[in-house]
C-alpha cells in the first residue's frame, strides 16, 4: 500500500527528471559538450516562475510560456558568450573545456541566486496547490500530475519539431555527423546555437514545474544536474522519450528505496543505478549507442 503510493509519487517526479534530462541530452548529443550548469539553469527557471507568482500572481503553469522563451534567450546569450568557443575544439577538448565553463557558471548562478533571493527554500503555492485526486485509496496531487502531463506534452512537441521541421531535421543531422550536415548546406554553428538555447529552455520549463510541485532554493542545481546525468546514462542519448522513460525509471527506483531502505538512501539509489548501467549496458537502457 505504502509502496504503491510511493510508486505513484515516483512516476510523478520521474517525469520532471526526464524533462531535465532531455535538455542535457540535447546539448550533449548535438554539441558534444556537457553543461554541468544545467541544474542551475533549471533553478533560474524555477525562480522565474516563483517570482512571477509571488509578485504578480501569475499562474505558474501559464508563466512557463514566458519562462521558457526567457531561458531560450539566456541560452542564446550563454552560447554566444561562452560555448561557441568551446565547440571549435576537438571532441575531447570540448568536454574538458565545457566542464570548466559549466562549473564556473554553476558558481556564478549559485552565488547570484543567494545574493538576490537569499538561501531560503521557496515554492509556488497556488489556491489549488493542495488539491488531490483520489483514485481508490490513493492520493494523487493534482499539480504534480499536471506537471507530469506538461512535461510529456513539451517533449512530444519537441519530438515533432525534431522529426518534421526543417531546422529540427538539421539538428538531428548535425548530431549524427556535423561534417556531412555542413555539406548539405546546414549552418552548423547556428544549429549549435539553436540546440543549446532549446536545451536551456527545457531546463527552464523543468525548473518552473519543480517550483510548483516541489520547492526550489539556490542550491538545487547540483542535485538536478546529477539526476539529469543519471537519466542520460540510463536512457542513452538521442531519444527524447527514452529520457522521459529513463526519468520515470529513476523516480520509481527512488520510491522503492524510500520504502525499503528509508529516505536517506533516496539519493544513493540513483548513483548505484548509474554505476550498474555503466557496467552492464553502457549504451543505456533504450539507447543504441554510447
Amino acid at each position: 500500500m505504502i509502496l504503491a503510493q510511493q510508486l505513484i509519487l515516483g512516476v510523478l517526479v520521474g517525469g520532471l527528471y526526464g524533462l531535465a534530462a532531455a535538455g542535457l541530452s540535447l546539448t550533449f548529443g548535438v554539441l558534444r559538450v556537457l553543461n554541468v550548469a544545467h541544474g542551475e539553469l533549471l533553478m533560474l527557471g524555477g525562480y522565474g516562475t516563483f517570482w512571477l507568482f509571488a509578485l504578480w500572481q501569475f499562474d505558474p503553469f501559464l508563466s512557463l510560456l514566458g519562462v521558457g522563451p526567457a531561458l531560450f534567450v539566456l541560452g542564446l546569450v550563454l552560447y554566444w558568450a561562452l560555448f561557441q568557443f568551446v565547440v571549435r575544439a576537438h571532441e575531447e577538448t570540448r568536454i574538458k573545456n565545457s566542464l570548466l565553463i559549466g562549473f564556473g557558471l554553476t558558481l556564478v548562478f549559485h552565488s547570484l541566486a543567494i545574493r538576490l533571493w537569499t538561501a531560503d527554500e521557496r515554492a509556488v503555492t497556488t489556491d489549488y496547490a493542495g488539491a488531490v485526486l483520489k483514485v481508490g485509496i490513493f492520493a494523487v496531487p493534482i499539480v504534480r500530475l499536471a506537471s507530469l502531463a506538461l512535461a510529456f506534452v513539451v517533449l512530444a512537441a519537441l519530438h515533432l519539431f525534431l522529426g518534421k521541421a526543417r531546422w529540427g531535421r538539421a539538428i538531428r543531422a548535425t548530431a549524427e555527423d556535423w561534417e556531412a550536415a555542413a555539406l548539405m548546406g546546414i549552418p552548423v554553428g547556428r544549429v549549435y546555437l539553436l540546440a543549446f538555447a532549446l536545451g536551456t529552455a527545457l531546463a527552464g520549463v523543468a525548473g518552473g514545474l519543480v517550483s510548483v510541485s516541489y520547492s526550489i532554493s539556490p542550491s538545487i542545481g547540483l542535485e538536478w544536474t546529477l539526476k539529469a546525468l543519471i537519466v542520460v546514462v540510463l536512457a542513452g542519448l538521442g531519444s527524447l522519450f527514452g529520457s522521459f522513460a529513463g526519468g520515470i525509471v529513476l523516480g520509481l527506483a527512488e520510491a522503492t528505496s524510500v520504502v525499503f531502505l528509508g529516505g536517506p538512501y533516496r539519493e544513493v539509489v540513483g548513483l548505484v543505478l548509474f554505476l550498474a548501467i555503466l557496467l552492464v549496458r553502457p549504451q543505456g537502457l533504450f539507447g543504441s549507442r554510447g
Binding site: R169, A173, E176, D177, E179, A180, G185, I186
Partner: peptide, 23 residues
C-alpha cells in the same frame, strides 16, 4: 563557409558516403 559554397552550386559526395544513418 561550407554552407555558402553549397548554396553557390558545389556539392561533395564524400568518401564513405556519410549518410545520416538513423534517419
Amino acid at each position: 563557409p561550407p554552407q555558402q559554397i553549397v548554396e553557390r552550386g558545389v556539392a561533395l559526395v564524400p568518401e564513405g558516403r556519410r549518410l545520416f544513418a538513423r534517419m
